[in-house]
Design a protein around this nucleic acid. Structure first.
Length: 410
RNA sequence: GCACAGGUGGGUGAGUGGUUAAAGCCAACAGACUGUAAAUCUGUCCCUCCUAGCGAGGUACGAAGGUUCGAAUCCUUCCCUGUGCA
């Protein structure tokens, strides 16, 4: 069994479920921190575990350039390389087709990138992206797509969508043929690092010599490849893209091509419309969103998985998310403030440090500022999703949206 | 005391007769950030006024005078700093 999606509770359009992957279970709706270069910037893995991070993102393009797949393969994949025993998802490099627009050339065959590191030329196709992702060995990997830019006219959006569909077929075809080449091997991790709920995945310790350690048994499992729905802001194209992607048949579906500059109301509209066409019994992953308010809303619409660089990047830039809105810890007004970042936050940063200290760290350019700010923002996001799951499990209707934070909503 | 070299906006430091209220960098202040080319990027940064503009005045390149249509830039004197010699 490589992927299992078990619905627990539904409440309105929202649902709570359990997604089982070769490296453990994930409770959904879930927020997935982004660790592009095999690291969630500024935060060590053991702290991520303590924060309750259940699944991480990695990026194919970045890891392919550095350190290279061969290296990661030697470690049995990303899990072993970065010492992260829990689930991982890799993005295909499709987003870089969009974001590196100055450095790339797209053709039907694939995309030629100029490396942002040294300017060297590299070619990515659906086949090579999947090959790379198999080498990286994430639990969930993504089809190679083209993230359509915004704005785009209907003809351009349709052409882009059609190509993404062809690329999806190629991705799947290559994956089915090569999925057994995944480099997973048994590797030992201290049992303290294993998420409790992965206990069922622990293999028998046959040699008996490592009784204090657990061994993840991934021998009989493979990765899972998700398809990606495109179609820009055009609801009809979204519908068509969803239906045709489903025809190709994937164990999970992502909604891509959003948060690319369109107004937020538009995003919501497209998400809501697209979800309607996605199967209820499979995980739905909304790529690249959002603010705390937005992820709560998308979860209420029925999204199961989300990822976003916002909490981590914003933290490094001094923007802090709190139950009372966002604050910029750089501001002079916090220079003497003895209170925590967020009075309602139980995280280790809020329990220990003052705003004045955190502002001081930031203005002094101390790396600890990045560490602490990121830990807080991630805690806040993870807590937010925990509350969303709790609300869904209580069967609270759409009301849970406003009760997620213990404050009146404006 | 003598001889050189210097004194520029909060700091550093360009500029050596006119597009110079004065580059760049830093600091300060504010803003942005949504499948990470991001410890990044953008704006403001002498004072006052308004119709808020590549707007109008004022003040400013150690001090005071002078030359010139015009000076941070040239001249004189003074003050201060560094180095060398007494």
């Amino acid at each position: 069994m490589s992927l299992e999606f078990k619905l627990n509770t539904c409440s309105g359009t929202a649902r709570a479920a359990c997604l089982t992957t070769p490296h453990g279970e994930i409770e959904t709706p879930i927020f997935m921190p982004v660790g592009t270069a095999a690291t969630v910037k500024a935060v060590p893995q053991d702290i991520l575990e303590q924060l309750g991070v259940q699944i991480l993102l990695g990026n194919t393009y970045h890891l392919y350039l550095r350190p290279g797949v061969a290296t990661i393969r030697q470690f049995g994949g990303l899990h072993g390389f970065m010492s992260w025993p829990r689930p991982i998802l890799t993005d295909s490099g499709g987003f870089q087709v969009f974001s590196l627009n100055e450095l790339r050339k797209v053709t039907e065959e694939g995309v030629t990138f100029r490396s942002h590191l040294d300017g060297s030329s590299h070619f990515f196709s659906p086949e090579s992206s999947i090959a790379t992702q198999i080498g990286l060995g994430a639990d969930i990997i993504m089809a190679f797509d083209e993230c359509t830019e915004y704005p785009a006219d209907r003809a351009r959006t349709k052409a882009s969508m059609e190509m993404t569909l062809r690329w999806a077929e190629r991705s799947k075809k290559y994956f089915e043929k090569h999925k057994h080449e995944v480099p997973w091997k048994q590797y030992r991790v201290p049992s303290t690092q294993l998420p409790a709920r992965s206990a069922s995945l622990k293999a028998e310790n046959t040699d008996g010599s490592e009784t204090s350690n657990s061994v993840l048994d991934t021998r009989n499992s493979t990765q899972s490849l998700f398809g990606i729905v495109q179609g820009g802001m055009d609801l009809n194209l979204r519908k068509e893209s969803a239906q045709r992607t489903i025809e190709i048949d994937f164990p999970g579906y992502a909604i891509g091509g959003l948060s690319v500059g369109e107004p937020r109301e538009r995003t919501r509209e497209v998400v809501e419309a697209t979800l309607e066409y996605l199967p209820k019994d499979k995980p739905r992953y909304l790529m690249g969103v959002g603010t705390p308010e937005e992820i709560v809303e998308y979860a209420s619409l029925g999204v199961d998985m989300m990822d976003c660089v916002l909490p981590t990047r914003a933290a490094r830039h001094g923007l802090i998310f709190t139950s009372e809105g966002k604050i910029s810890i750089k501001q002079a007004r916090y220079a003497q403030d003895s209170g925590p970042l967020d009075p309602n936050c139980p995280c280790r940063v809020c329990q220990r440090y003052s705003r004045a200290y955190l502002r001081h760290l930031y203005s002094s350019n101390e790396v600890l500022a990045q560490v602490l700010n990121t830990i807080h923002n991630l805690s806040f996001y993870l807590d937010t999703m925990r509350r969303v799951r709790h609300s869904i499990s209580l069967g609270e209707e759409s009301r849970f949206l406003s009760s997620v934070w213990s404050r009146p909503k404006a």
